[in-house]
Amino acid sequence: MKKTLIYLTLISSLIACKKEVETPDYNENELTAMTVEFDNIVGGQNLILNNSTYFNTAGESYKIDLLQYFVSNFKLGKADGTYFTVNQDSSYFLIKGSNRNTRFATIKVPEGDYTTLVFTLGIDSLRSAMDISKRTGVLDPSGGMDDGMYWGWNPGYIFLKMEGTSESAPLDPTGQRKFRYHIGGFGGYSAPTINNIKTLTIDLRNRGIAQVRKNRKANIHLFTDIDKVLSGKNTISIAANSSVMFSTFSTSIADNFMEMFTHDHTEN
């Protein structure tokens, strides 16, 4: 009896799993590739690493020398209220400020007209706790301390990493005035803790819906305003908080993520 129960649980969990990764109404081969472009800007300027000087709402000037963030779990909605969820195994992207080729998230969806884009800034809790064999590609936790997006001591992904210099930052032992923001936190595995996963919903109707057709390549062009990390609904002062990593204060920065993304236009 007990064995049967275990088998039953196993089978039902397998079925449950299957539902999550496949959309039964669509054949994977019939899907069409499209892209979501994450075009990094800072206030009214382009992001140029190690070069341009920017100003936050706290009135501080700063330069950015490293910027990386994860976007994941893409979903596209139609005017009738239905959503298509992209195959989760192919729905994780690392956008790097240092490499313009990484700005496109290529996803596969059925043909159709889409009016809403939903995605996550960060990595969902399920994937954050998954067996290491499921953490390949950008999720491979093998990166180094410099550009790695993973915490080894309290396992979890860094959702957004932004580093740079500012005259407002305190002098560190190496003689630099650096700021470092490493923001993550998926809610904890066995004991609850901070959750900085943010789900963004973008209405595409004002600036152009995505018309996905075979033999064409729709591109939803978003602006990611990096200044919003410091200058959103919470004003973050570099002088007061030059280094923010796994801490309760990080939630104030993560709340600002909600304002980073705007839809500029769609190329169909």
Partner: peptide, 24 residues
């Protein structure tokens, strides 16, 4: 802090005061 033994070695390998290396 580490909830999965399969993720544990990443910590000492990358820690500055332990092995100070990258897994890659």
């Amino acid at each position: 802090g580490i909830f999965d033994l399969d993720l544990q070695p990443i910590n000492p390998i990358t820690a500055h005061e332990e092995m100070d290396e990258s897994v890659a």
